[in-house]
Design a binder for these strands. Structure first.
Lengths: 219, 219
DNA sequence: GCAAGACAAATGTGATCACAATTGTCGCAT
DNA sequence: ATGCGACAATTGTGATCACATTTGTCTTGC
């Protein structure tokens, strides 16, 4: 089954971490669903020790929740929590974009346009997981130019928390067309318009919140 | 030595985590200084397993750094990193304060005034560790009224990263008098002035940055 | 039919151990 | 003196195990 495990050099616990993390982001764990140490260990053909380390790390990063009895489960998203995390994104991400602006060049904006067009493909095919991953990839590519690892780490920790839920939201929406704030942001990047760039990022993040609100109302 | 360890009910790894975390925040670990699993384990009279979990958790929370060879050490603060973390605080903390504002009452502001006066005591006695802890306590008390646990967790993770360094900064400064933006913030809280509250918080955070800049220039 | 209780399986926690890699130290040659 | 290499101690990693608690299930009694 896991014949696709070409892990060379990297520690076992790190590999388990990445594997489990990918599963969480990809929606492989339903909210509230628990993951057992022995189950994870035997499934990945490792011992309990690295499995436990991977789980604890994801708990520390809030990608997993700890039940009172000490079991790790995929966290349930609430409207309030999602709204908080969105506000944090709305505050931090424009700052990262502005920091990236002076370091942007034509090659970057071309790369961003390429990533953005791939998003259209994922929307068209209804691949919500690929869309969420690609969306994070696009934002990460831009913010990488900010050379701000500490800020970046904060934002990525938010993505880790909202990712599984956003995947669910986009899954419900199907192939609905979305306002392309990415394109606006890239245009602002090209023209060096700081305020427009920040506003486009904010609008993009806020659009995610609106989509989620609809999903919450549906149930 | 560790006779003061009345841990009842809480898991060992959690107790080790809290103990080590307190040590880091209190400056018990010099930047770059490594902590060994066996050393920590034997010192706290526990096995390597909970020691390892505690260390890994602190690494995940960026309160400890991982060297390429897999050893955990207290992270070194750079000017750039501190500037990034300060900007994050400057963005997130005013938002938390504004969220807390509608839930504030006379009892809260009295409590905050009390905590703020304790800070003066710590400045006067030159107890940098107590000052940093008390400062975090004051901010936390205000933000708790925001009922925003996800945002709060983000801010606390920043404090965890900046805490040890701030303690060092305040330690150098000695009993220097600081502008009391806390008092301004509390006044804004009492009068319900949202903009003034946010600005006072920003100024408070920025003051920390300025102090640190001085420290960086000294060496 | 169903709720409660007893029993069994499963689970998290912490300890111990073997192994490989790293780190520190001592001695030797230049 | 000083740089270098071999050896020993230290360290992180992963595996395995025992134990107490929790969870799931089946039976029993009403």
């Amino acid at each position: 089954m896991n014949a696709s495990t070409p892990r060379a050099g990297i520690p076992t616990h790190d590999w388990v971490y990445r594997t489990l993390r990918r599963r969480i982001m990809g929606g492989g764990l339903a909210p509230g669903e628990a993951v057992t140490l022995r189950g994870l260990a035997t499934e990945l053909s490792v011992s309990m020790t690295p499995a436990r380390e991977a789980v604890r790390r994801l708990v520390a990063e809030r990608a997993l929740e700890m039940t009172p009895t000490g079991r790790a489960a995929a966290p349930r998203m609430t409207r309030d929590r999602f709204e908080e995390l969105t506000q944090a994104r709305e505050l931090l991400e424009p700052a990262l974009a502005i920091r990236a602006l002076p370091n942007a060049d034509k090659m970057l904006s071309n790369r961003l346009k390429e990533l953005n067009s791939q998003l259209d493909t994922h929307i068209a095919s209804g691949d919500a997981a690929a869309y969420v991953a690609g969306n994070a990839d696009l934002h990460a590519t831009l913010y990488a130019r900010a050379n701000a690892p500490a800020l970046m780490a904060l934002v990525e920790s938010i993505w880790l928390q909202t990712g599984p839920f956003m995947r669910l939201v986009y899954g419900r929406l199907g192939t609905q067309s979305l306002a392309d704030y990415h394109a606006i942001a890239i245009a602002a990047l090209d023209s060096g318009d700081e305020a427009a760039l920040a506003e486009a990022i904010r609008a993009d993040v806020r659009q995610g919140l609106n989509l989620a609100e609809d999903a919450f109302q549906q149930g």
